[in-house]
Design a protein around this nucleic acid. Sequence first.
DNA 1: TCACGTACCGGACTCTAGTCCGGTTCTCGT
DNA 2: ACGAGAACCGGACTAGAGTCCGGTACGTGA
Lengths: 219, 219
Amino acid sequence: MIERNGLQSGSQDPAPEGALLPVVQVGRPADVPRGRADAARNRARVLDAAQALFAERGVQAVTMDDVARAAGVGKGTLYRGFGDRAGLAMALLDDRARAFQAAVLDGPAPLGPGAPADDRLVAFVLAYFRFQADHLELVLESEAGRGPGARLAKGSYRFWRQHVAWLLQEAGAPHAGTRAEVLLGALAADQVRHWLVVVGRPADAVAAELAAVARSLLR
Amino acid sequence: MIERNGLQSGSQDPAPEGALLPVVQVGRPADVPRGRADAARNRARVLDAAQALFAERGVQAVTMDDVARAAGVGKGTLYRGFGDRAGLAMALLDDRARAFQAAVLDGPAPLGPGAPADDRLVAFVLAYFRFQADHLELVLESEAGRGPGARLAKGSYRFWRQHVAWLLQEAGAPHAGTRAEVLLGALAADQVRHWLVVVGRPADAVAAELAAVARSLLR
DNA sequence: TCACGTACCGGACTCTAGTCCGGTTCTCGT
DNA sequence: ACGAGAACCGGACTAGAGTCCGGTACGTGA
């Protein structure tokens, strides 16, 4: 593929608008020495510090000042590198998000290609739900952000929306675009948190019902 | 300006936790002289000032300090009376929210009682969508609020969730509770704003597709 | 090796939501 | 009518996200 440097989206760029997930490339070139050494070092420091603080106190209890201080870096550096709080959370999720995306695009059926679209859709719902549940705190932050509809404006949302819409269309569902958005809305971090944490329902039960919802949306 | 001076639920109480919509009562007792005269006067001033400012500059561009200053009131008074920004927005929507609720509970079919549950459900989706679209800015504020899942914690959400779940159950849908939440998620202000404002789709088309989604969720 | 320009650094600053509490004023009971 | 005290008033205060810009140090070209 093209040496598309969009890949370093998670490495140097201030993340123009939450475009953390590259639309295609997954493996990374590992080179692209474009940036400055101190910049890369600071980025790594910030990620390490954030991960440590988040693990120690919980994501919500950590302020951006905390992260900057712990990383030995100014707030300007922090915000230039990650854009905002949501960007920092996305960067921390980057590896796993890429892996999940790879599994959907190139992995084994039924999540990956090869299975009928309706089965892939159900597999996707289960996997996405699990992803959200497994990284709830970080995903919550990454889907937040200022302004209304922050979640709907991120690049990763567009990617998944397109994937789901395509599966729905392929499976013969009407209004695939709208239904993809309804389905992703049901899988949004806020909603998942509500079910699992606030209400305290067992994850398996919720996931199964959402899979049934996906099937219902096919007709 | 509205004759009604705030009505009981929204009149004195600091709105314990977004319980603006009473679960049953719609007509107001009209008595309950519990409060103080100056408190009521200040409340009215705040509502008037907020409405004027919101109309003039748009909801998002008005800060709570603006409202307090324009109302000739301290911030303490503002926050005691309405809890937070979302509470103020809810109070401004109160009349119409009550009217809508009354139409659903006691109004003519198919929105009100008398029609088959599936028809009522579709009527509800169309009416709720329209409500959200007609008061988008205020609803957006009222569904926001600090912390994740603010929308899911409000009393009005619980009310509608219950209503929709009941209709779904009555119509024979499986997992009525979960599906009610999925449906309301699709009708959330953020999502509606995304379709209508960001993407620019015509309201009628979106509403029709959501009605179809509701029907799909019945089986 | 060295000078140059650019990209980056960092912390002081702004902006706004929401809290607190000393002082005031209205209502109720007598 | 009047005293007592609860309820309310308002603005100073806190906290935290995100911005700005003068200064710095890194990479590049000669």
